[in-house]
Design a protein around this nucleic acid. Sequence first.
DNA 1: TTATATCACATAAACGTTTAGGAAAAGTCA
DNA 2: TGACTTTTCCTAAACGTTTATGTGATATAA
Lengths: 345, 345
Amino acid sequence: MSPTIRDVAKRLNLSIYTVSRALDGYDDVADATRQRVIEMAKEMGYTPSRAARQLRRKRADAIGYILPASGPHFTDPFFSIFIAGLGDEATSHKFDLLVSTAEPDSLAEKELYERWVQGHLVDGLVLSRMRLNDWRVDYLLKNQFPFAAHGRSLNCDQYPYIDMDSQAGFLTIVNHLVERGHRRIAYIGAPRNFTLQEHRFTGYCEGLKAAGIEFDPALVCEGDFSRNGGYQAALRLLNLAHPPTAIIGVNDMTAVGAIRAARERGLVVGRDLAVAGYDGTDDSEHTQPPLTTLRQNAYETSRRLVRVLLARISGEDIENMQQIMPLELLVRESTSFQYRQLENI
Amino acid sequence: MSPTIRDVAKRLNLSIYTVSRALDGYDDVADATRQRVIEMAKEMGYTPSRAARQLRRKRADAIGYILPASGPHFTDPFFSIFIAGLGDEATSHKFDLLVSTAEPDSLAEKELYERWVQGHLVDGLVLSRMRLNDWRVDYLLKNQFPFAAHGRSLNCDQYPYIDMDSQAGFLTIVNHLVERGHRRIAYIGAPRNFTLQEHRFTGYCEGLKAAGIEFDPALVCEGDFSRNGGYQAALRLLNLAHPPTAIIGVNDMTAVGAIRAARERGLVVGRDLAVAGYDGTDDSEHTQPPLTTLRQNAYETSRRLVRVLLARISGEDIENMQQIMPLELLVRESTSFQYRQLENI
DNA sequence: TTATATCACATAAACGTTTAGGAAAAGTCA
DNA sequence: TGACTTTTCCTAAACGTTTATGTGATATAA
């Protein structure tokens, strides 16, 4: 067994009180004593038991994040970066990061959140992939449990979040495509209950309107954030009698799937078809051709989320309860050509 | 505050002992009593405090995994799948998964492992990206701390691991390329301290030997598992006076970078240059052209690792302490063409 | 000199569980 | 009937911390 605070105290002929206070840096311990304690603790390899500390202090020094995934087929690289950011920032504050996976709105998800919250397993939670009516928000608000969200739900004024103005972002993308001469611009979205779908779709519609293009419901498909979802949806679009000349994916994964579909149809993306995505994950830079996308800084965002969450946990006032992070339109080859407007004039 | 076991006991006029035993399913509680307890616990929304349970039981019901990453530029999708597998399997055993990130062989890594092990924050650890002389293995063995590894270090007979026979795998890839007519086959590897580099590089060399191709050190580069590392290395290779006609990447990321480099050089991958990778992550299917790769089932592997680890933790005998998972060569377009052996005959 | 403040440490009580060791009540057997 | 076993529950002691409260010794002030 590893040594306890009691063992250290005994070796020094001190009380456990003194050891505890010395190690935690309180000033009611003489400097000489503190030195002895610190050295002995190090020598004996003493590390405080997290469980005991947690029980006594009533905090876990840990935050939690539940991946919106299920099974192996959910591997959006976005979440690799996101988790890396959470982990790095948490670690730098001596917090741990508890991670699990659950399918959105599943029973397992509910049980997991309840277990973590009720059992005080974590001091706060990071939410992502917000839904319009998000039971997690209701649940956590009701239990007064600290959390911070990436994105927002409908009642988003009551909690801290960081979001992108993806509505404006999608308007920008449509704009960009219109400038390139496109008039038949398709959109492959996400399931409707996700807030981001509402924002991005609205941005898409506004973009069309601004360009005086009539909205065509045939050009809107629903994907599922995955490459395969994008692939399937793009195939449907390209099979239309009057197919689109440009496709916007709700995220990069979707766009990657669309690129693949185009290729299978013998279309050269960047010449015969424009494709754009959203997220700006590293791999969007390495698609063939490189993908035009709206880059959000997922790493910085997740680090900020942790900072906001920790402030929330320690009850500090948060100055920027709600932050909107900038988006950067990265124009790459997948949309770089000027479309010859033969048919649409 | 959420109710404690004491609150439940009081409401039922029982002792906390009975409540505890009833909920944990021991048979020294009358069935009728057990029913009452269970119902009341549910009604009051009682969840045992993890900290208290952990303190008393001396186990955390959690396992840990430390991502070999640092900063934002580490986003191998392999780890998304890997973590998803860990999370799913752990959850199904009512275990939690603690995740953090640390740069391999950094001080931070050491501190993190020590904190988790000494503080009994987790009951066991999953290791990955094993190094030849892996201090983690020494440390954990010395402390008799349960762990299971993805891959192996030099002294791998003393702990459970799951590995692929990537040496044979790389031999197979070389074979495949030789069959396609290639003689100048390059290899972009990983830093030397990683075991997998040794295995894969050896496999590459054996493949060359089997085909009677002389080893050319100019065709071997070191990458860093990343797209960019692969990109840079591939540029160097393609700048050679006598460049390779095929490039094998130590992983898919590296290969993706190589594809990009080829493209920038005006080479069409699958016609002018063959590229192959390793991992079989989902995105290898969606590169342009789709990437030939050795597929390992990361999801299944990580789930198995958790099972092995949990067996280890509960002291069970493990039948398959060391498992070698199969690899599947996925031949896709990136290597599908027959190379015209003009110069090399 | 005495009263009081400060310093440096100690004692002991929590925190919410699990569980060893009993113990009363009921059942079983001679 | 009495002795023994079984069932069902309880009391109380841990687990390893943190911290409210206490206490001598020394320093300071009146």
